[in-house]
Design a protein around this nucleic acid. Structure first.
Lengths: 135, 135
DNA sequence: GTAAACTCTGTACCCAACCCCAGAGTCAAG
DNA sequence: CTTGACTCTGGGGTTGGGTACAGAGTTTAC
């Protein structure tokens, strides 16, 4: 058994987690990952931070903001499972709303493109007309 | 018949179009609406700009960027109907892609929330686990 | 032992679409 | 004719998630 954990410089940590060095510094600046005290001049990072950063990246792929991800990390003590589900559920509601909005926009655009394609070219473009209409 | 068109100060124009004065200045700065030469000290704006600004706002509601809206305005000479449809169609493709992405994210979240709700509270939260999983 | 590659701190910049402020001058209602 | 509401120019700041230096010091591979 070795008692000291492996440590990485910031550049190695960045390469291991497949992010830029600046991303790590940014995450530190917003408190998403800790900033170890310098040992001598440089700071050394535990390898466990590689997983932490990948955690963040996967959360982003689910559309979570860094603030939400920070909250997930904070809540991950086994005591707050319902709160964690709450974050995921709120995100789902937002996604549902966004999908609804996009579908409305999509069908409005489809209608306009269709009308435009079937309107005599001597008449004004229905797309422009619809935007210009006073309501 | 009155020969001179009605003119508005920037504040009246803003109120008529229901935007802020700063929005108008911003639109001027990016060339979306013209900046009339000052008459004396102040600039005076034709009422037709009210419609132009509402046009912009409605385009934004369809998810168009200001750059795309500027292009629509530029193309609106009766000669470029196909190009106008092209803008709308490209936006539709982007929207379709976005909807697909969101639906994938939504179902991933739904699965996680469901699994989390049906996992013994003595076990680690599946939402956290899934984000922490090494892949 | 030296040169390349790295790290440190700090600052500034990117995107879009604005918002807000200061200070000076101007216009219009009463 | 005063006073309050407006306009002008020019600058700054906001949000989120970073990227890009600059300049000085440090470590490491050969």
């Amino acid at each position: 058994m070795r008692s000291e954990a492996k440590q990485l410089t910031i550049g190695r940590l960045a390469r291991a987690a497949e992010v830029g060095v600046e991303t790590i510094r940014y995450y530190q600046s917003i408190g998403l990952i800790p900033t170890p005290e310098p040992t001598g001049t440089y700071r050394y990072y535990p390898v466990t931070l590689v997983d932490r950063i990948r955690f963040v990246k996967r959360g982003q792929q689910l559309g979570l903001s860094l603030a939400e991800i920070a909250e997930l990390i904070r809540l991950n003590d086994g005591m707050h499972r319902a709160a964690i589900r709450g974050i995921a559920k709120r995100r789902m509601v937002e996604i549902d709303n966004r999908i609804n909005d996009l579908q409305k926009i999509r069908s409005a655009l489809a209608t306009l493109v269709n009308r435009c394609a079937h309107t005599k070219s001597t008449l004004p473009c229905p797309i422009i007309e619809s935007l210009a209409a006073q309501r």
